[in-house]
């Protein structure tokens, strides 16, 4: 191609003067070198693509603003920009590590969605309603303490104030309530699983 004989410096100066095709020649001429350089650092095609794009956006902005000093070093200058962007990327990644999920190991095998699926939701509801029914079987004083503690989320201090018994009595009733619940569950072979 005849373009090849035009030096980078001339192309840059033509581009600054408004010749858009000069940029095309520059990009075509150097894209492989720059992209390979970025890829050799990041080892990820998509990331390399992003950095390549950001590099040239910076190049275009700088040239259009007339902030570029022509010293006959267009390629080293572009390389330096991409190098700095690669460093920025690594800095960002160490601050906010990202897990690459492309390999054999899937991150989702160790991380799970905590939200319950439909089946687990039904099981949970069943278990909760079973427990409620079992609680109803408890003696009144134990039931009262257990309801306040578990369902109303009250402290033993508050329970003792409300019921007019000492904290130790409230603690004792809670203990017996749990023991009795376990007894009923064992006795009737009830399976509560979630």
């Amino acid at each position: 191609m005849e373009h090849k004989f035009i030096s980078d410096a001339n192309l840059v100066s033509n581009y600054i003067k408004g010749d858009e095709s000069a940029l095309e020649i520059l990009v075509t001429r150097h894209k492989q070198k720059i992209y390979s350089f970025i890829y050799s650092k990041v080892y990820d095609r998509d990331v390399a693509e992003d950095i390549f794009q950001d590099t040239f956006i910076k190049v275009i902005n700088t040239l259009k603003r007339g902030a570029y000093n022509e010293e006959g070093k267009f390629l080293p200058w572009v390389m330096r920009i991409s190098h700095n962007l690669v460093i920025d990327l690594f800095r960002k990644n160490t601050r906010m590590p990202k897990f690459d999920n492309s390999g054999d190991f899937s991150i989702f095998s160790v991380l799970s969605d905590n939200a319950l699926n439909a089946e687990k939701m039904i099981i949970k509801e069943q278990v909760e309603s079973d427990v409620r029914r079992l609680v109803e079987e408890l003696p009144e004083d134990q039931k009262e303490v257990l309801m306040m503690r578990i369902y109303n989320d009250m402290s033993f201090k508050e329970i003792s104030d409300r019921t007019g018994v000492s904290i130790n009595t409230a603690l004792g009733r809670m203990r017996y309530a749990l023991i009795n619940l376990r007894k009923i569950i064992d006795k009737h072979n009830i399976v509560l699983t979630n």
Binding site: L23, T28, Q32, S36, E49
Partner: peptide
């Protein structure tokens, strides 16, 4: 590494951006 090139669409995007 020497065979690597950016996608055509990336290059086109840059030229259009310019």
């Amino acid at each position: 590494f020497n065979d690597l090139k950016p996608k055509e669409e990336t290059v086109n995007f840059l030229l259009n951006y310019s």
